[in-house]
Nucleic acid binder design. Structure first.
Length: 684
DNA sequence: CTGTTGAAATTTTTT
DNA sequence: ATTTCAACAG
């Protein structure tokens, strides 16, 4: 490569251009790197460089957006300095790191030793519970639902906005209920505190608060010497505050030693404002961190020139642009394709055909991905791929943990972990005959008042229909409570207990029970129940598929992913489907800022492609909304791809009448028997 | 209060 | 298609 002449001939800096090299070798102080691509490489090189220069790997903190991203970077760095060394690097998401630190300092912080992290689903349930208790569910005008309540709450906490402002800006329809919402939130907060429950937002909040305490703050911050943060454009004010405090305390506490903070991001790729993220964090970095060095990486290493032209064209019409001149020297004859499909079926057919064609031409399935706005956008395609035996893995779809039966299982584990977790108690008790929300609450109240181990449940005046089940429950919990048995054994016993209950309660109980077996398998790797529960909530497996074990290296599959989940990834061939108005931008996006975020979302999708890019949309699509009359309507191409930019594409129109009679291509050679088996197992 | 039934409303993105 | 809500019988 021609770009390495300015670098030292040190191997971990090989292949970096001068700017990347500067970022990797930056020794002390704040550093902002604004970049579209080449970030992963730069961060990995910097980690390696720090270690080679003598930094203690255990005092490097690498904060990323997903755990997968952290692993990838450390894997790369590990190739240079050795895996044994990079394993010591502290890496993960803000939330996971918060959890780790809070476990260490829980007592000093006045947190219960056995605090439990609750996922957004639990938080919603708790909000719902409070809402009904306060009798707000039957007010005359429609009261916001639990999901809405949680997003309002999250917004207030993460953007540190007062409730009224958040409501006015993002949820104007809820403004009339402001007072009641406030009451719910107050109760929500105090109840979590009473029961030692922390939701995702609390994790950040507690970390931030802990840093304000003189002793503990210093102790936490000086554990580290160098902090690196990826995807900084998608951090929220709460995370920025943590970073700022951390750095301040580090510089105070480590006088004489050099320390650094590096953030990497791209304002054009900020797509998480719905979660409170703000691009302002990147823009304000030089002010918030005095003396910051700023490096811009303008060279795009990923995409070919024709692909980059399309991406740049999309951003060209952006209302607010932070000019960046992305260059590529990857010439190509191959122009992106803009495909109008007659309907969703035709779109699926087109994609499946192209995937196989590209595979014939030497692009393995693993280097191809289909991206879309909403997870259900791939429904029809999934049917088609399955029909043709094309293996695929879907990212970011239904969350495994959201399944009722998995929550049931976790409720048992949580009660063992923290008997004050009344949410979980309610969940368990409601499985029994004759116990509904009312009785369950009664029981929980009873337990709270006179807790003396699990047998206290016996003293509660339960309905006769549930007596036998309750007796069994007490035996189960007592048998497990302080037994020191591994989690997998606990799950095995719980499974036995649940089997008759599931068979009565659920339609497809066999499938659900098999899921519990998967959980048992998964838990065999866990160090303890505590860590098993925490890992599961902070880094949930996406589907049953993730539980079937790590995919083998020789397995071939196409990735189907929401655009959000595709962040930071790249593929040789990328298909972006459903690029229609109403999908991208989503009908939900109302305000101008929302629309701009949708535009960036499309930009992110397009720039995932290295060599080949296909943009498709179905012209006629089916409405589920009004089942009478007009079930079909016609769509238009996304407004972000106006006719003026169509010349950058090869334009194709695929008609159903043409392909109807044609023999469909199918996977000709078996890819590998175990993929088949796995695919069958997943969806059969 | 529970558990069932049927009608009505509602669909983004995720640590 | 799924979830939420109201109404009613036990």
């Amino acid at each position: 490569m021609e770009t390495q002449q300015n670098c030292n001939p040190t191997k971990w800096l090989d292949g970096l251009n001068p700017d990347q090299c500067r970022a990797a070798k930056h020794c002390a102080g704040p550093l902002l790197v604004v970049a579209g691509t080449g970030k992963t490489k730069t961060i990995a090189a910097r980690v390696a460089n720090l270690i080679e220069e003598g930094a203690d790997p255990a005092r490097i903190l690498l904060l990323t957006f997903t755990r997968r991203a952290a692993e990838e970077m450390l894997r790369r760095a590990g190739r240079v300095v050795g895996e044994a060394v990079t394993r010591q690097v502290q890496g993960g998401t803000f939330h996971a790191m918060a959890h780790k630190l809070l476990r260490i300092y829980s007592e000093a912080l006045g947190l219960g030793k056995n605090f439990v992290v609750i996922d957004p689903g639990d938080a919603q349930d708790l909000l719902d519970l409070i809402r009904t208790e306060l009798g707000l569910h039957k007010s005359e005008s429609r009261f916001p639902k639990k999901a809405t309540l949680l997003s309002i709450y999250t917004r207030c906490v993460n953007a540190s906005q007062p409730l009224n402002q958040a409501l006015a800006e993002r949820f104007p329809s809820c403004l009339p209920h402001a007072d009641d919402i406030k009451r719910i939130f107050q109760e929500f907060a105090s109840r979590k505190a009473d029961r030692d429950l922390l939701d995702f937002d609390d994790l950040l909040l507690y970390w931030s608060q802990a840093l304000d305490l003189p002793e503990i703050g210093k102790a936490i911050a000086t554990r580290f010497q160098h902090i690196l943060v990826d995807e900084y454009q998608d951090t929220n004010p709460s995370q920025a505050a943590i970073l700022q405090k951390m750095y301040q305390l580090m510089t105070q506490g480590l006088e004489g030693t050099s320390c650094s903070v590096m953030v990497v991001g791209d304002d054009a790729q900020s797509i998480y404002s719905f979660r409170g993220a703000t691009v302002q964090n990147i823009l304000d970095f030089p002010e918030q961190f005095a003396g910051a060095t700023v490096i811009t990486l303008e060279q795009n290493y990923r995409s070919t020139i024709p692909i980059l032209r399309v991406a740049n064209a999309v951003m060209h019409f952006a209302r607010k642009r932070y000019p960046k001149n992305l260059r590529s020297d990857r010439a190509s004859e191959c122009r992106p394709e803009l495909v109008t499909c007659a309907n969703e079926m035709a779109q699926s057919t087109f994609i499946a055909d192209r995937i196989l064609e590209n595979r014939e031409e030497g692009i393995p399935l693993t280097k191809q991905a289909v991206l879309f706005r909403a997870s259900h956008n791939s429904d029809a395609l999934e049917v088609e791929l399955r029909r043709r035996n094309i293996p695929f893995v879907k990212w970011g779809g239904l969350k495994f943990l959201e399944a009722a039966h998995i929550k049931d299982l976790l409720a048992f584990l949580r009660v063992l972990e923290n008997p004050r977790d009344d949410l979980s108690w309610m969940r368990i008790l409601r499985m029994f005959d004759g116990i509904g929300p009312g009785r369950a609450r009664e029981a929980v109240l009873h337990l709270q008042e006179c807790w003396g181990g699990f047998q206290s449940l016996e003293a509660w005046n339960a309905p006769v229909s549930a007596h036998a089940q309750l007796r069994q429950l007490i035996d189960l919990l007592e048998g497990l409570a302080d037994s020191g048995l591994p989690v997998s054994v606990e799950i095995e016993r719980i499974r036995q207990f649940c089997t008759p209950l599931f068979e009565e309660r659920y339609e497809s109980s066999e499938m659900r029970l098999r899921d519990l077996d998967q959980m048992e398998l998964l838990s065999q790797q866990a160090r303890s129940r505590t860590s098993f529960l925490a890992d599961l909530t902070l880094d949930p497996p996406n589907s049953t598929g993730d539980l079937a074990g790590p995919p083998l290296l020789d397995e071939e599959y196409v990735v189907l992913s929401t655009i959000h989940s595709a962040k930071g990834c790249e593929w040789d061939a990328v298909y972006v489907i459903h690029v229609a108005d109403g999908v991208i931008p989503s009908d939900m996006a109302q305000g101008e800022d929302d629309l701009e975020e949708e535009r960036r979302l499309l930009y992110v999708a397009l720039t995932r492609a290295r060599n080949r890019l296909y943009v498709t949309f179905p012209w006629r699509y089916f409405h589920r909304k009004h089942s009478m009359g007009d079930a079909y309507s016609t769509a238009q191409f996304s407004r972000f791809l106006p006719p003026a930019v169509h010349f950058l594409f090869d334009q194709i129109s695929s008609c159903p009448t043409e392909s109807d009679g044609m023999p469909k291509l199918a996977m000709s050679q078996p890819i590998s028997a175990n993929v088949r088996a796995r695919v069958r197992q997943l969806w059969g």
